[in-house]
């Protein structure tokens, strides 16, 4: 038992190492890529102020001030070092468009909305998709033909396409749901039943538009896995023994489910782009809408803050799934540690 435990600890440690490298690379990209932008963003920012009729010596002072504020007066390697140091202090810099608003504050406000939308969608979509996929494989025939084609259809619609159709159909054309936002105008985020119900009302359409697509993608993967399992010896044997269909499908489901855990990890990364746009379609007050505005306003610190938080979230989710997978399936641990 202790040996098993230490092996698992080694597995976790090794995974952690890989993710640390990924994190370092992602943060470096996050730092260097926006610095490739030709021209000095601060000069652009200051020249925008100039149209407001500010005196030129005042402009020069503002320019110097901004350069210091954004740390751009230092050589690149010092900026890089500072960037890392500030990151661990939770300081993501100052926003251009909402100067002197802190990027970390803006993200802190938006993050809970995104988490509340994404995590349930991914988990429920994954679970329902797997059940549907297994049912397709097991039932076959007409059911499979219809359900599989439907799953193919929805899984490949970009998320926001369905979002736009739902928004138009169920909020604009037939005003059943609100046309956007996270809660009604005049309502404030607080812990009360009326706010909760209002938020839920706003939540429905973004949730629906994302879950249908997520479900379809998982169903396709599961169907293939389950079709494979159905041809294995243990299934033939169980059937020959006269086990009930219900029991056989439960075995098949459990075995086919295991590789699907990787599907869960993939979802966290691949769903991100679509989910970000879905948020901005519904003007949902999460990271996606924030990023949308930041890009439009060329607010580089805020863009960097958003991309960073997305990266961290996806890496963290993947890491947790990897650990869970290694815990459930000993073969994965062995393969990772190079024992097989």
């Amino acid at each position: 038992m202790t040996m098993l435990k230490s092996k698992f600890a080694r597995y976790v440690l090794q995974k952690f190492g890989w993710y640390l490298v990924a994190f370092f690379i992602a943060v470096s990209l996050n730092f260097f890529l926006p610095r490739l932008i030709p021209g000095n963003p601060v000069r652009v920012l200051v020249s925008q102020l100039a149209t407001g009729g500010v005196q030129s010596d005042a402009l020069a002072r503002i320019y110097d001030n901004y350069m210091r504020e954004f740390g751009l007066d230092q050589p690149t390697h010092i900026q890089f070092f500072r960037y890392f140091r500030n990151l661990f202090r939770g300081d993501l810099g100052t926003s251009f468009m909402l100067y002197p608003g802190k990027v970390s504050d803006l993200i802190r406000e938006a993050l809970p909305w995104t988490v509340a939308l994404q995590i349930p969608t991914i988990l429920i979509g994954w679970l329902l998709g797997n059940i549907l996929g297994a049912a397709c494989a097991y039932k076959g025939g007409k059911f499979d033909a219809v359900a599989f084609t439907l799953a193919l259809a929805v899984s490949n619609i970009p998320y926001y396409c369905l979002a736009i159709i739902l928004l138009y159909g169920l909020a604009v054309h037939n005003p059943i749901f609100p046309v956007g936002g996270g809660y009604s105008f005049g309502n404030f985020p607080e812990l009360s039943l009326s706010f909760f119900l209002d938020a839920l009302h706003h939540y429905t359409l973004p949730f629906l538009s994302m879950i249908v697509v997520a479900l379809g993608g998982q169903a396709i993967g599961m169907r293939e896995m389950a079709l494979y399992e159905l041809t294995t010896d243990y299934v033939h044997y169980s059937k020959a023994l006269g086990l009930s269909d219900k029991k056989v499908i439960r075995y098949v489901f459990r075995n086919a489910m295991l590789p699907q855990i990787t599907g869960l990890a993939i979802s966290f990364g691949t769903m991100m782009g679509g989910a970000l746009v879905t948020e901005s379609v519904f003007s949902y007050p999460g990271i996606g809408s924030l990023l949308f505005t930041a890009i439009r306003q060329a607010d580089y610190p805020l863009i960097q803050g958003c991309t960073l938080i997305i990266t961290v979230a996806v890496l963290l989710a993947n890491f947790l799934v990897d650990i869970a997978y290694g815990y459930i399936d000993p073969r994965i641990r062995a393969a990772q540690l190079g024992e097989r």
Binding site: W18, Y19, A22, I25, A26, L29, N30, L33, P34, R35, L36, I37, P38, G269, T270, M272, G273, L276, L291, I295, Y300, I303, T307, I310, T311, V314, L315, N318
Partner: peptide, 16 residues
């Protein structure tokens, strides 16, 4: 493991 959309966004803002 690094979400490709993030790299895409960063590359796109870097290339004018």
């Amino acid at each position: 493991t690094i979400p490709s959309i993030v790299v895409l966004i960063l590359l796109s803002i870097a290339i004018r």
